[in-house]
């Protein structure tokens, strides 16, 4: 079937099968390979994108159901001039990523959290990340980056 949607502010579309999940459509047909797939049980959150402003796991949504929606992926998060947005910059500043594989989903979840709760407590950040698994960072610097992105004071990165 034919589906059309707006992805990162641009019209996009293509032919999909019923079984095509949104993450496959984004990766395979739109070449938006920043959307990562790290599990098959809807738990790791590497595939989180925004569908009509809501963070969803794109591996657990049929592409057909996203027809007519507005989608934002990690590729659509930077500022208009290509510079990192506040959240992305905070992740770099606070070393909130290592291998980078979970990072797109983390950033998309963080953006959804801060939209809903502009000044989350540490516990709220940790709770909100229940569906995003990172194996590298131990989350410490991810939590820190998100709090910093919300304008809260955090301990700066290590310096000798």
């Amino acid at each position: 079937m034919r589906i059309d949607m707006v992805v990162n502010g641009k019209e996009a579309g293509g032919e999909v099968e019923g079984r095509t999940v949104l993450s496959s459509f984004l990766r395979d047909q739109l070449a938006l390979t920043g959307c990562h797939v790290g599990c098959d049980t809807s738990q790791c959150g590497a595939c989180v994108v925004h569908v009509d402003g809501q963070a969803v796991k794109s591996c657990t949504m049929l592409a057909a159901e996203a027809a007519g929606s507005e989608i934002t992926t990690i590729e659509g998060m930077a500022n208009a001039d290509g510079s990192l947005n506040v959240i992305q910059q905070a992740f770099q500043d606070h070393h909130g990523l290592q291998c980078g594989f979970c990072t797109p989903g983390m950033v998309m979840s963080a953006a959804a959290l801060l939209k809903e709760n502009p000044k989350p407590s540490e516990a709220e950040v940790r709770d909100y990340l229940e569906g995003n698994i990172c194996r590298c960072t131990g989350y410490h610097n991810i939590v820190k980056a998100i709090m910093a992105a919300s304008g809260q004071d955090v301990v700066p990165v290590a310096a000798e």
Partner: peptide, 9 residues
């Protein structure tokens, strides 16, 4: 239930 993304769907 689940996590925020699961609760959105």
């Amino acid at each position: 239930i689940g996590d925020p993304a699961v609760r959105a769907r």
